[in-house]
């Protein structure tokens, strides 16, 4: 057996799996989004933009995803930096603190937020006890609830991505900056931030993509009234059974994500 043959043989099962289990389904979905009773049509897309209902869902999805991405970066960056600069033992515990929620089912984590934000949860009852809110107050089924829950769900992705790039950053560079007159915060701004920018961008894109396409947390915490695009797709698939329209919505979601991803992939490809 030649080396080439062996390599091909090792690739074969994986390629077959991806072709049948990944490529074909995506193609099928793309096809369904453009076929109607009379052949190729754009009617499903037209329906999406017919009135303001679906565009408003799209806009909410984008808006919430942006807020979630910014908050995740704002919390994740300092956390990852601290993790990259503490001793190995403490770092280990912090890694566990980050991956334990990551490895726990999204459904379970969202349940935790439902308890925390619900009418009989600790937040509402504390506010109520201080007379700040009325009896019926609950944070559930609000955009705030979605943002809170999603930031917690996606924070580990951001932290781990950033940790990868921060851990590779030579601490001598910061020390050198200090001997050249930087205060701690200045060395952070002039050295750490610019050099970890690729990691920050990668983490943000990952979080944005996951956020825009997630639906378990938004639909449980946001309820039926505050719909996001992914939840709307789920509804089209399971309730109204309009698969063509579901496919069209998925394509719109995908296009939105690609719009963000492609410039980034090009940029990173250019800079190696």
């Amino acid at each position: 057996m030649t080396a080439r043959r062996e390599t091909l043989l090792l690739f074969a099962p994986g390629l077959a799996l991806l072709a049948l289990g990944f490529l074909l389904p995506i193609l099928r979905m793309l096809m369904l989004s453009v076929v109607g009773p009379d052949g190729i049509t754009a009617v499903h897309f037209a329906r999406f933009f017919q009135d303001s209902y679906y565009p408003s869902i799209l806009w909410r999805t984008v808006r919430l995803s942006l807020i979630i991405t910014v908050l995740t970066a704002a919390i994740g960056f300092p956390l990852a930096y601290i993790m990259s600069r503490v001793g190995l033992r403490l770092r280990l515990w912090l890694v566990v603190m980050v991956i334990l929620p990551l490895m726990t089912s999204v459904v379970v984590r969202t349940f935790g937020w439902m308890v925390l934000l619900g009418r009989s949860g600790p937040i509402a009852s504390t506010l109520r006890d201080h007379g700040l809110v009325g009896r019926g107050f609950s944070l559930m089924h609000t955009e705030t609830a979605i943002v809170l829950g999603m930031v917690q769900v996606l924070l580990p992705f951001m932290v781990l991505t950033l940790l990868g790039s921060l851990a590779r950053l030579d601490p001598r560079l910061e020390e050198a900056a200090r001997t050249m007159g930087c205060s701690f915060l200045q060395s952070f701004r002039h050295v750490v931030l610019p050099l970890s920018l690729p990691g920050l961008v990668a983490g943000s894109l990952l979080v944005f993509t996951l956020s825009a396409s997630s639906f378990v947390t938004p639909s449980l915490l946001g309820g039926a009234r505050i719909e996001v695009l992914a939840a709307s797709i789920y509804k089209s698939v399971t309730q109204t059974l309009d698969w063509n329209f579901a496919a069209a919505q998925a394509v719109i979601l995908f296009a939105g994500v690609a719009l963000v991803l492609i410039p980034y992939l090009r940029l990173t490809a250019r800079h190696g």
Binding site: L18, L24, P25, I26, T209, S213, S214, A246, F254, V257
Partner: peptide, 27 residues
């Protein structure tokens, strides 16, 4: 290039893949 192919399921949102799978399987 091959690596990108094999890691592509990480790039495509799960929900998109999920409905594609459902549609392909059912048909």
């Amino acid at each position: 290039a091959m690596e990108t192919v094999f890691l592509s399921p990480l790039l495509i949102p799960t929900i998109i893949f999920a409905i594609g799978m459902l549609m392909l399987w059912s048909s």
